[in-house]
Design a protein around this nucleic acid. Structure first.
Lengths: 142, 142
DNA sequence: CTATAGTTGACAGATTTTGTAAGGTATGAT
DNA sequence: ATCATACCTTACAAAATCTGTCAACTATAG
């Protein structure tokens, strides 16, 4: 029951981006340096975030990434789901394999389904803005 | 954010065990057959469950496994945590690596910590008995 | 004393995650 | 124009984890 570092990186990077952008694009190089995340890896993540309409890109010198919306309209669950694909605890819920006819399987599925719902609900209850405010409050070291 | 099949197997096997034991030990061979789980793999899982004081073993012919407690006193979260080791979404919370001084990292850690708490709380709110009752209600096919 | 069934450790195959490499494309500045 | 910046994309390799297998052992009922 581990969250991939992909997801952790993505959320951290989004917080960092919010903290350091003042209407102007922030380059991945800067984020990578500050957050100690491999640049090429970050690029992949931000590709997904862009396709997920969470960030927008500006190419060329002085370019970088911008939030596609206000930070109060971006939920953590969205970020995680976008880079992590399935936010469901078990796989058989994605396709409909029908194998749920076996003995105890169907009963336990309900549990995993509810668990997934709890996880999504919780992560969706937190916005990027919440994290930025908390990070700012944490003080000005660095 | 996937639950290992280890954990899924373990919970299913525990439900199966509860359903088919009437005070008498149930052999892993039977569970493996009914639930379509590799026997050798099940053995490993039940080793952990035994060390976790969730089941008791009876060796020799006619032997098998018994619940170590009433099913109402066994929580799903316990089963999962026992076979899956860490039920924390990120790794840096296990040892205390101190790297939490970096920029946005500490802020996001709070989120993962709270998430882990939610997951554990939810899974601990469901007992094995709950699942057994639900499975019985599901009908007598098989 | 034999068959059953739990106990244990080592290990291999498969999958997933994480990270690297290498090239491409758009664009602002000189 | 051309150059440097920085996004964009694909392919691939290294590492970790998960899943499953094998083999040998121990306890015990009949």
């Amino acid at each position: 029951m581990r969250l991939s570092t992909r997801a952790q990186y993505a959320v951290r990077a989004m917080v960092d981006l919010s903290l350091h952008s003042e209407g102007r694009p922030v380059s991945l190089k800067d984020i990578a340096l500050r957050e100690d995340i491999p640049l090429n890896y970050l690029e992949q993540l931000f590709n997904r975030l862009r396709r997920g309409a969470i960030v927008e890109s500006v190419r060329g010198p002085g370019g970088g990434y911008l939030l596609a919306r206000e930070s109060s309209a971006i939920r953590v669950g969205e970020i995680v789901a976008t880079v992590e694909e399935p936010l469901t605890p078990v796989s058989c819920m994605d396709k409909g394999k029908g194998r749920c006819t076996r003995t105890a399987a169907c009963t336990t599925h309900n549990v995993w389904e509810m668990l997934g719902e709890r996880i999504r609900t919780f992560l969706d209850s937190i916005t990027l803005e919440d994290l930025v405010i908390e990070a700012r409050g944490r003080g000005g070291e660095e």
